[in-house]
Design a protein around this nucleic acid. Structure first.
Lengths: 217, 217
DNA sequence: TGGCGCGGACTGTGATCACAAATCCGGGCG
DNA sequence: CGCCCGGATTTGTGATCACAGTCCGCGCCA
């Protein structure tokens, strides 16, 4: 599809992949509010491609639950009900507790250091009231930990849940202005250091549940 | 997209939906062996449509992990490694134990009756050495139970896992000729009748794990 | 003034086409 | 006898187009 034989592993990914990644990132990090309408031609123009790659990207995101399709085929970011939020929170708890538990035996000091660095960044971002930055950094914290679990399918499922919560999370974290941030993260790090599996499970469950509980109002 | 104002809710679904459902069913029920190559033009011809709907269906299935895309864009059913099988089995256990647990308080006698009917069908199918029929009926048993959990997102995730295991399950259940079938299913039903939650969790976990363990050889 | 209907603009869908990369197959060379 | 190269074929990709359904807003009528 493109003809550059040189350079890095993937210097110019397929157009639909580029569009997909762009949209996915924006959705997962809450840059698009829930209920926002999107059009294929609009997306295409935005990324400088025709409708075809835009359509494929949208289809893929719909399959992952990141976008919803109205009966007439219109696409928009989902507005999810409280029931669904609770269900997705339960899924997060289920999956992420397991991922953390699997990561625990492999958590070297270098990993813990990186987690603490990310945590510091979270504090800064909270200071600036930067909601999108907060979501991104928070998810980076979790992803960094779960990568150690060596469970790609499980991590992929967790990311799918994040994706579904993306537009809604923006609304949530727009609310908390206080330095609420890294409290449970510190518990997670402490449990990792101590090799305390039950404590880790509890800390992860609390961290995941806490924020989402206040969203289901 | 279609213009029949009459009759049933969806008399003529969009073409890509029809293709998607057809492929998805065949994959989930193990009718396609792992590693099988598919072509867009081939799928299109098979369903009497052009490449466009075929492409969308394939893309969607790839997003769900039901198909894999080679670096050059070729599509085929996945051949999954033992590590991945174990991970998917763990996911099944995690999700389905939770689903069963949530279904338990809502499990009336009518549901249990239906489960027993399905179980009888499983015995017949096993008798006939009908691998595809076995997979389909077995999944129907699980789905019938989990529908009572009132947790659509969770059920959707479980189905995604089934989908990923589809082509591989065929190989598995082609192996077991004996009447292995409904042993753990009977334990599940017994636990449902008794309202025994720990027993139910254990029975579901065993049922899910048992079959898949012998696959990771 | 308020509700209704109609028309035009907009949107998704599916077909088709041109193109480039990948794959396959057979023949020729070492 | 085996390996490699080159062309023909197959395959996915993205653009474009015609069409049908949908939606929005303006104007008309009560």
């Amino acid at each position: 599809m493109q003809s550059r034989p040189d350079a890095r592993p993937d210097p110019s990914p397929a157009a639909h992949e580029r569009v997909y990644r762009g949209l996915r990132t924006r959705i997962m990090y809450g840059e698009i509010p829930p209920g926002e309408a999107l059009t294929l031609r609009g997306i295409g123009k935005q990324y400088g491609v025709s409708m075809t790659p835009a359509r494929e990207s949208v289809r893929r995101l719909v399959a992952e639950g990141a976008l919803t399709l109205s009966a007439s085929g219109r696409v928009s970011t989902p507005e999810i009900s409280n029931d669904r939020i609770e269900e997705l929170a339960a899924l997060r708890a289920l999956l992420e507790v397991e991922l953390a538990s699997r990561a625990l035996p492999r958590a070297h000091i270098a990993l813990i250091d990186r987690l603490q660095t990310i945590n510091a960044t979270i504090s800064e971002v909270v200071e600036r009231h930067d909601a999108v930055g907060y979501i991104r950094t928070n998810l980076e914290f979790h992803r960094t930990l779960y990568l150690r679990a060596q469970a790609p399918a499980m991590l992929a499922m967790a990311e799918t849940v994040w994706l579904q919560l993306g537009p809604t999370m923006r609304k949530l974290y727009g609310r908390l202005n206080r330095k609420e941030g890294p409290h449970f993260h510190r518990l997670i790090i402490a449990a990792l250091k101590a090799g305390d599996e039950p404590g880790l499970r509890l800390a992860v469950r609390s961290d995941v549940t806490q924020g989402l509980r206040m969203l289901a109002n």
